[in-house]
């Protein structure tokens, strides 16, 4: 039994590219059906085009890198929350009695929670993306936050991108240091306790307060991230500062 027009329209609206033989026969059956099918084809082409977003540059490399990053095995675990991990395993090196101060309004429960969460997402992949950035490239990322970066910092940045932070957008960088690649995240609107340190997944991190906002330096356990404290502290400064 062949489809009536109402059934045909319903099928056309639900699955216009259906290969069901009865539907395909109906498409060609009478002018009324053919016209409806042609209109649906035009709409479908527009719909497909509208939904066709490009994979961002570097994203595929970042995905492929996952299987070559040793820490990805642990990073892929069931996303342990930093606070419970710290309490359970005692891996927190030092969080002051007052704890890390924060001004959360964007969903993470704490800065450390954000830090572990974000680093597990993005850290290993970005570390693997080598590439020299010009000073202008780097500076452009900071301008929107009304801060500037010193040449001491810009000349060692190999990867830079915008990233979410606990209080809005920030900047995620990978720096080329003599100890190897180190991650730095600039958080323009987040307050932290200066020089707080923490550990997760074989990584160590140090928080620092800046003149405008804050940052975190993340490196492996073998790297001397505290040596970068003054570089970062003195390198990200308000745009209209005299320094």
């Amino acid at each position: 039994m062949s489809m009536n027009f109402s059934e045909f329209i319903r099928q056309l609206g639900a699955e216009p590219r259906s290969q069901d033989p009865e539907f395909l026969r109906a498409r060609q059956s009478v002018p009324e059906f053919r016209r409806a099918a042609e209109e649906a084809d035009i709409f479908e082409e527009k719909l497909t085009r509208a939904m066709d977003l490009q994979l961002p540059e570097g994203m595929m490399d970042s995905i492929l890198q996952i299987s070559h990053t040793p820490s990805s095995d642990t990073a892929a675990a069931a996303r342990p929350r930093w606070r419970s991990l710290a309490l359970a395993a005692g891996v927190l090196i030092a969080v002051g009695a007052a704890g890390i101060s924060w001004n959360m309004n964007r969903g993470w429960d704490s800065v450390d929670d954000y830090l572990v969460d974000h680093y597990q997402h993005d850290g290993p992949g970005l570390l693997a993306l080598a590439g020299e950035k010009t000073s202008e490239d780097v500076q452009a990322f900071f301008t929107r936050f009304n801060v500037k970066a010193s040449s001491e910092l810009t000349q060692i940045v190999s990867v830079i991108k915008y990233c979410p932070t606990p209080d809005g957008k920030g900047v995620h960088m990978v720096l080329n240091t003599k100890d190897g690649p180190v991650t730095v995240i600039y958080m323009p609107a987040t307050e932290v306790s200066d020089r707080e340190t923490l550990e997760f997944d074989g990584m160590q991190a140090m928080l620092l307060t800046l003149e405008k906002g804050s940052a975190v330096i993340i490196g492996s356990e073998s790297q001397s991230i505290s040596a970068l404290y003054s570089v970062i502290h003195d390198s990200i400064i308000p745009e209209f500062s005299n320094a």
Partner: peptide
């Protein structure tokens, strides 16, 4: 991208999906 409407979150979702896929 179409379910969350945000580029950064979409990238994170995809990255996390592949991390979990690699693990499993």
């Amino acid at each position: 991208m179409w379910i969350c409407g945000n580029d950064a979150l979409a990238k994170d979702l995809v990255q996390e999906t592949y991390l979990r896929a690699w693990k499993a």
